[in-house]
Structures are given as C-alpha cells and as structure tokens.
Design a protein around this nucleic acid. Structure first.
Length: 592
DNA sequence: GGTTTAACTTAGAAGCGCTCTG
DNA sequence: CAGAGCGCTTCTAAGTTAAACC
C-alpha cells in the first residue's frame, strides 16, 4: 500500500518518476519519528525509529537526494547516515502528503488499484508508454472490458457442435497430460494445468490484491520424476528450470508463485492410491486420539492451575482447540490478510462476560479465521478458564496476543509427546468424525424412509460444519428460491383445505378415497416443509468441506450399509472415487 | 530456540452443465 | 422443450506442519 501510494503520488506530481524510483529504493522515511519504511529489492521493511539495528545494517553508497533539497516539516524526516536530509519543496509536498496518508484507512478498491497500477507500470515496455500513463483514473479500460464481454457472449452462443469440439479437445488434453505413472499404476493428476496469469484478488482485506500474477514459463518449472522415466519435453525453444529425481516427495512439477514467492505444485488427484493412503492414515491418527483423549483432557485441565504462565496458556489453548475445533493459528506476516487461529488470537478478539443471557462465565469470540471467514460464538466455559483468560488479558492492549507465551510449534511439540502423530489439527478431525458418528446414531431410527434418513445424514453433517465453522456466502438466488418454495407450501395448504372440504361433503362410498387424498397432500406438505427447514438451515453453511476433509468416510459407508441407503445418495462420483478405499474396506459394524 | 522454507491439506467461489419443472 | 436452478467440477488461495537453517 505504501509503495503503491508513493508511486502513484509521485507519478501524478512528478513527471520524472523514474528518478524518484531510484531514490526511494534506498531511502529511509521517518514518519512522525515513529515508524520508518525502506524499500529493499521490491519489499518494504518496517521498523521503529529507535530500532538502530536495521538502520546501521544497511550499506549506503553515495547520497540519496540531490544536495539542493530543502528541510522537511518537523514531524517528517528523511535520514542519511543518521543525519536529517534536506529536501526540495516538491518532494516535501509529496512526503507531507504521504505522511497524511499514513493515517488514512484504505478501502479495498484503493488497495487494489494502487497495487495494480504499480505492477502494471512494471510491465510497460516502451518509454513512450511509461511516460504517457501516469494516473489510473485517467485510463480507459472500456475496450478491453468490451472484448471480454463479447468473448463470454460468444461462448454462451456456441452451438452444440462447437461445444462438443471443445469438449473433445479438453478430454484429449486430459488423456495426454492428466495422468502420470506411479509405481506402475496410471494415476490421475489433480491439477495438471498451470495457473494462468491474472490479477491477484486474495480473500478478505488482502494487502496484495490487484497485483499482477505472472505467466509461468518453462524456465520457472522444476520437473520431478524418476531417473528412468521418460522426461517430459519442454515446449519448443524452451528448457525446464531443473529436472530432479526425488522420490521422497509426491509432487510432479513445481514453480514459485510471484505474489508471495511461495512454491506451487502439480500433485496427484485425491482418488490416487497415494492420497488415499494418506487420508486413511489421517483418520487412523484421529481414532488413536479417541483412545487417548480422556487423559489429554485431564492433563490440560491440570495445566489451568499450573504455576507457570506458559502451561496455563497452553492448557487453555488446547481446550479451545478441543472444545471449539479452532485451528492452530500460526503467526502471519503483514503481507497477507489479518486473520487468526487459536494461538494468534488477540485480546480484542474475545470479550469476557461474568454472566450473559442467564449463563455464567461466557466468552464471546469474534475474529476472522482462515479465508477471512468470521468466527462468532458465545461459549460458556469453566470458571478456571474464565479466571485464566482474565489473567491473560491483564495489562494488555487490545492488539496484544492473548497467548503470548506459546506458539504453534511449542503447542504441537507438547501434543506430540502425549501421542505420536498428534497435532492441533487432529482434534478437528477427531471431533468432527466423533460428532458425525454420535449424531447419526442419535438421528437415525429404523422405519425411516430413505429420504428421512438422508435428511438425518445432512443434519449430522451440518452439526459438524457448524462445529468447524464452515460457512459460505448465501446463494445469490436464495431469497428468490425460498419465496418460490413458500408459495408452493401455501398452495399445498390450500389444496389440503380444499380436499378436506371435499371429504366432508363426500358421500360415504367416496370417503375412503378422499381421505387418502388428504393424507397424500399432507405428506407432500410435510416434505416441502422439511425441504424449507433444510434449505433455511443451510443458507450460510457449507457441508462440502467437512464431508471431504474431516469426516471419516467409513462412518458414512457403514451407516449406508446398516440402513440400506445407497452410497450414491450421499457421495457423488468424485467423492466415491476419493473414498474408494473406505467403500471397499468398510462393513456395517464399523464405528469410528 | 527462533525463523524460514518446503510440502502437503483444507477452503470457498465461480462457472458449467445437467436435471427438473411447468 | 425451454429455462431456471442447483449440484458438481475446477480453480487456486490459505492454512498446518516438519525439516532446514542460522
């Protein structure tokens, strides 16, 4: 944000922007004598003005500003070799503006546009273009927009035959590039297509939104295959970055993505044997936790009264992870959206209520978790937990860490000592699968129709999704389709009234028939109402994530077998492929 | 002992294409 | 038989975790 602000400001004020670029690459900027920023090879670093270590660790060669620059206002200084620099009135104006902007809260749009403009500048090739384009607001994108609208229109208007051709081409590509040979087996690849270039969006208030995601070149790609295999040929005129033969990892190709500089991988499809075995292992670890969880719970309750602060914090953190299925919550840098998990919770994310709505010792959670999904929950906790939380937040500011003496690494180390393979996320798997098993046992009764059983299954699934906070945006057509359903219900009710009237008026001989009609209509009404509740309850709940990642498929398969529900009713084709291992091995008596 | 990196799992949105309904 | 709506697939971002590094 700072970078793009500087760029865009200077670009609009100073035509010789490239020289600005030169000096801001190396300058320190003290804003209000508190914080400074420096641009080091495309990355801003922040420090406190008292932080002399960063200051002295840098090598300077030559002055950063021409000598004719005038002094700055009192509260902003540029420093060189520890001495304040003199700046010209023009630059002063820019910097004053910049300092003002430090207090400015940026809207998503501003962040996006600044990032985009800054990156876009980099890709301009001609000097004329570089000089010509100075302000985003003066750029007209209507032609490129029109182009894409037309393209999408064209796609929509394609004939059946044209679509068929496209489909065949896609399946040819899939045949050729979509599979690999692993231990002699032909396995489907998960993501065999490279990610195309585009503008990065990210989830939530992402500071990098709008940046240009670059096109991947063969020269960026590392190939990982066995020594004796046929090495895939790079496109003509190109070469791979590297070809390696590492059989300790599962990826087939990788490259560095340019937004965060993180590696990305081409890996196998979840239906593969490799992924299936991993998945099975995951659930076996969770089942081992089942055997161990009582003693672990005892242990962390003991920690609540420990003399050591770090033990108390660890005890409460594991309690949250266990009870509320929170994620571990690794530390994050400020290059990504401000989201938290358990260990990174800040004081501002909880509110303590001695009493609330007739309950005692209630903790109110309100924070953004993974993917900037809001977690909001009011939870009654044990008195000792409440006491500890009070202790943890004492003398802290809202933006301070709630758990300042523990990290995810330390927490996982402790867990691993309790049980080999135990980490924070195992609790999510364990609690999710346990919940499903319990709910299914509770909600399914003999004599239910298959439809009713499936509703029960969805309800059990939903309980898990709520536990894990799996949310989705309400479908765009939700209100409309809900209204439609309600109209149908209304109609059905009227039909029932009508049928009842007819029943009353009917002659004895016809009574039986009319009664059946009423009954049938009532059943239909019940079904519609059931559908209404189901849909309403599912408005902002996403069931897919838990089904795919947290629920031991053997629970579902066993349940299907026991209650004569075809497995196709709960798993679609992809899911059946992914869970093939479970469908094969599970009998109706399996319990998680 | 903290920090960084690599490798893997988990996540919701968008777009598509199939199915159901009127 | 069309057109809406919904389920499925695709996409890739964003987590976790262990190992490597310093």
């Amino acid at each position: 944000v700072l970078k793009c602000l500087l760029y865009s400001t200077v670009l609009s004020l100073q035509p010789e922007a490239s020289s600005f670029h030169f000096w801001c690459e190396k300058a320190f900027i003290f804003a209000k004598n508190i914080t400074f920023f420096i641009l080091k090879t495309n990355k801003w670093e922040e420090g406190k003005s008292s932080d002399t270590q960063k200051w002295s660790s840098l090598e300077h060669k030559g002055p950063y500003f021409p000598p004719e620059y005038e002094p700055l206002p009192d509260n902003i200084c540029f420093y060189y070799d520890g001495q304040p620099m003199k700046l010209s009135p023009a630059t002063e104006e820019i910097v004053t503006f910049y300092a003002k902007m430090l207090d400015h809260e940026y809207t998503s749009k501003e962040v996006f546009q600044c990032n985009f403009f800054s990156d876009w500048k980099e890709v301009r090739t001609s000097i004329q273009e570089r000089k010509l384009i100075k302000m985003l607001s003066k750029c007209d994108f209507s032609q490129i927009h029109k182009y894409f609208v037309e393209k999408s229109e064209e796609r929509k208007n394609m004939t059946k035959e044209e679509k068929q051709v496209l489909k065949e081409e896609a399946s040819r590509l899939m045949e050729e590039y979509g599979f690999c040979l692993l231990d002699g087996h032909r396995e489907k690849i998960g993501n065999f297509k490279l990610e195309p270039p585009g503008l990065f969006r990210g989830r939530g208030e992402h500071p990098k939104m709008g940046k240009l995601k670059k096109r991947i070149q063969p020269e960026d790609v590392t190939i990982n295959c066995s020594q004796d295999s046929k090495i895939p040929a790079p496109p003509a005129g190109h070469r791979w970055k590297r070809v390696q033969h590492d059989n300790t990892v599962t990826w087939l190709a990788s490259w560095l993505e340019n937004i965060h500089g993180r590696p990305k991988y081409i890996m196998l499809n979840p239906s593969s044997k490799l992924k299936g075995e991993k998945d099975w292992q995951k659930y076996e670890t969770a089942r081992r936790l089942k055997m161990k969880v009582d003693s672990i719970r005892k242990q962390y309750r003991r920690d609540w009264t420990s003399r050591e602060m770090k033990s108390r914090q660890r005890g409460v953190a594991i309690y949250f992870i266990d009870k509320l299925a929170l994620r571990a919550g690794n530390e994050k840098d400020d290059e990504s959206a401000d989201t938290v998990g358990c260990c990174s919770l800040r004081v501002e994310h909880i509110t303590l209520h001695r009493r609330l709505d007739g309950q005692e010792h209630v903790v109110e959670f309100d924070f953004l978790g993974k993917d900037s999904i809001r977690y909001y929950n009011k939870v009654p906790v044990e008195k000792q937990v409440f006491k500890n939380l009070k202790l943890f937040i004492k003398h802290k500011d809202p933006e301070d860490d709630l758990f300042d003496r523990i990290t995810t690494v330390k927490l996982n180390k402790t867990l691993n000592e309790c049980m080999p393979g135990l980490t924070a996320k195992v609790f999510r798997t364990f609690n999710a699968s346990t919940t499903l098993q319990d709910q299914l046992n509770k909600l399914t009764t003999e004599g239910m129709t298959v439809e009713e059983k499936i509703l029960s299954y969805n309800r059990a699934n939903r309980a898990v999704a709520i536990l894990c906070n799996h949310q989705r945006a309400a479908p765009k057509t939700f209100e409309k389709s809900m209204q439609l359903l309600q109209e149908k219900i209304q109609k059905k009710k009227e039909q029932i009234e009508e049928a009842k009237k007819e029943l009353k008026e009917a002659k004895k001989a016809h009574k039986d028939k009319k009664e059946k009609a009423v009954q049938r209509l009532s059943e239909q009404l019940k079904k519609l109402q059931l559908q209404e509740t189901d849909r309403e309850e599912n408005k902002v709940i996403a069931l897919g994530t838990s089904k795919l990642n947290y629920l031991d498929p053997r629970i579902s398969v066993a349940w299907c077998k026991k209650h004569q529900v075809p497995v196709e009713k709960i798993y679609n084709k992809t899911q059946r492929d992914k869970f093939a291992w479970a469908i094969d091995m599970t009998d109706e008596n399996f319990q998680f």
